[in-house]
Each structure stands twice: as C-alpha cells, then as structure tokens.
Design a protein around this nucleic acid. Structure first.
Lengths: 195, 195
DNA sequence: TAAATGAACAAATAAACAAATTGTTCATTT
DNA sequence: AAATGAACAATTTGTTTATTTGTTCATTTA
C-alpha cells in the first residue's frame, strides 16, 4: 500500500475517532487502535496529534467541497448552477455524520471571521467557486453587474452563518425555511429582469 | 432621588466598569466605588452581581434600540426607512464605546442562535420593528410579497452576523464594503420594479 | 425612618503541588 | 521497510490550602 493510501485511511479512522470523542478526549492510541496499529507506528505517518487533527479536518472539508463541485458541474444553466451550489453545499453536512460531529465539537473550524480561519486555502477555493458562478452570470447577462468580490464575501459569510445555525446550533428545522426564503430573496437581487 | 433614577445611574456606572474590566474581573466593590458607595449599599438596589450585569447590558441594548427607532421614525418613505434602520443599527456601536467593549468581552450577549439569547424580549422588539417595515413596504406595494416572518429572521441573522464581524472580530473596514454591497443586493431583492 | 456602613460569613477563585495520563521518540524486533 | 513497546517529556487531572470576592445583616448615620 502506498503512503498516500495509508494516509487516506488514517484520516478516515481519525475522523471517526475525533467525531466520537472530540479532539481533547480522543487519544493518539484510540486512533491507532481504530486502525489496528500501535501509536508508535502511527507516528511514522503523522507529525503530531494536532497536525493529524488539522489534516483530518482538511480531508473532510475537501470531500465536502468536491461533492458540491461535482453536483454543480452537472448543471449548464448558470442560474440553476448557482441554486444547486447553494443548496447542495448547505445540505451536505446532514449526510456526513462524522464531519458534522467534529464541527459541532469544534466550531472554530468554520469561523465567521476569515482571520481565525485555519483552512484558508480550502475556503478560498470555495469562494472562488462562488465567485466564478457570479462572474459567469454577469458575463451571460443574467445577473446584475454587482461588485463580485464583496458579494462573494457577503454570500460566503451568510453561508457560514447558515451552517452554524443549522448544524452547530442545531436549529435545522426553522433554519431550512429561512434558507429557502433567503435564497429566493438573494436570487431576486442578483437576477436581471430577462425579457 | 427616586429608586428608578438610582438604578439608571447604577447601570451607567456598572456599564463603564464592566466595559473596563469585563464581567469576571470587575468586582462589585469596583462598581460601588465608581458610584461612591459601598458594596453593602449597592446590594440594596441589586439582587446579585450576575443580575446587575444582565440588567446593565439590557439597559445598553435598549438605548441602542431607542436610538435606531428614533432615527428611522424621522423617515416617511418606507424604503428610505428600511435603509436608515439597517445602516443606523449597524453603525451605532461605533459610537458607544462602553457597550461595544462589553460585547467584545462577552459575545454571547448577541448570539447567532435565538435559543442562546438571554435578551429575547429586547431582540423580539427589534425584530418586530424590522417586521413592521417589511409589512408596510408590502402593503404599500413597494416590496415583493415575501414571507415576512422568515425574511425577518433571515435579515436579523445577517444583522447579528455583521455586528459580530465588525465589532467583535474587528473587521470594520472590510466589513463596511460588504455591508453596503449586501444591503444593495437585498434591497434589489425586496423592491418591486416601480413604474 | 430611609439610606448607608462595615464587619461577618459563605461561595468562588487562584495557587501550589503530587499523581496520573498521554504525546512523542527511538533502539530493537518482525 | 514497517512495526513494536519501553522510555521519557509534556500535559492534564486531582487535591489541598490560601485568598479573594459575593452576599447578608445588625448597627450607624443623615
């Protein structure tokens, strides 16, 4: 087995253990056991517990991102693509129990403030996805000529807010209706009146 | 001096002390001294330190709310009223050093989640203000016929998010541009095309 | 007599230290 | 080359004591 495959499996195992116990309570030995190895051996693959944790979370976030990208690329119409992107990104966590548990245990993973963000690169890529959709929408004359950068920041912040409300604060039910209404409102603000 | 006046003065003094030291470090004696009295005497007016804190914060929040209400009631046009309400509510904290300091020290005062809100009544009143504006806008045929309740929740959540970003996380500068762009977007989503 | 004081007490917090757990390394084994 | 487990270092936890701070109330003051 290649080192890359090993790492993939380690991250999967670690994600489950961190989901179950949280960062603090999970021991390196717990994670090693989950993989059927000793902690000494695990250290041949990872630098430290903290490093393992960050890499594990990044692994989970990238899978989330990949899923959304995959789903939206199935859409040709840019407006539909925008809607799919928003809804799929929002609903994803309801299907990833482990990552959801990790996020609930450590909400600093998805901070409202970019300055506190430990996963800048990943989130920058997500924002670039969003930015690309807005840009295309404008170029195709479907969206108003808005300030793309600030609108991207604005929408991404709202997105983070919804994730926190729905999954960290567990206001799932009431948040869903808010999300639908909010998406409608924003879409109306983006769309040019087509004739 | 009436008891009501005394309480008003106590809250003012307490706000300054809590602003300076934060809840934990501020002692009841500090606050009593700020008023030139002894802590034993202060206890004739307040139930406990915690109770004093909550009442003090409520006092600050109500002043904020009153200021916004006052400013927006100077506007007849409902769309302008909406804009004034949003901008004044957002900028208020930049002018209230003490309340801002207290909020920075204790962000749970203004939580993203209604369930964690200790000032439900005050915030419900704020939301009612917002809801009233939306309702009037619809009745006057200026706003689309949106779901008023969910849109109110949505907009209030965004408002809380902006307060946190701008004042708690101190992202003032970059948040301002986001706010302006976001307000424009939402306004476009609300407004009916008038002819 | 209403408002304020300060001593007295209870509750919470901080400091100091020992004991136990857990993160990390590495010489040795598989 | 990959894995082990003993050894060690760093943290965390538990416990006790000392100190501070919150709260009450009999007494004093204006």
């Amino acid at each position: 087995m290649t080192k890359k495959d090993s790492l993939y499996q380690i991250y999967e195992a670690a994600l489950n253990v961190f989901a179950k116990y949280g960062y603090k309570k999970a021991t390196v030995e717990d994670i090693a056991k989950e993989m059927g190895m000793t902690k000494g051996n695990l250290y041949l693959y990872v630098k430290s517990k903290k490093d393992l944790y960050e890499k594990t979370v990044a692994h989970g976030l990238l899978r989330w991102q990949a899923k959304v990208r995959e789903e939206m690329e199935g859409q040709d119409d840019i407006v539909k693509r925008f809607v799919i992107m928003c809804t799929k990104a929002f609903e994803y966590l309801s299907k990833d129990r482990a990552l959801r548990a990790v996020l609930i245990n450590d909400p600093t993973i998805f901070p409202l403030s970019p300055r506190e963000d430990r996963f800048t690169e990943i989130n920058r890529a997500s924002m670039d996805m969003l930015k690309g959709v807005l840009q295309t929408g404008i170029e195709q004359g479907r969206f108003h000529k808005i300030d793309v950068d600030h609108t991207t920041q604005f929408l991404f912040s709202i997105y983070v807010m919804f994730i926190i409300k729905a999954y960290v604060k567990s206001e799932g039910r009431s948040t869903q209706a808010m999300f639908d209404e909010g998406l409608g409102l924003i879409l109306r603000g983006l769309l040019k009146n087509e004739r």
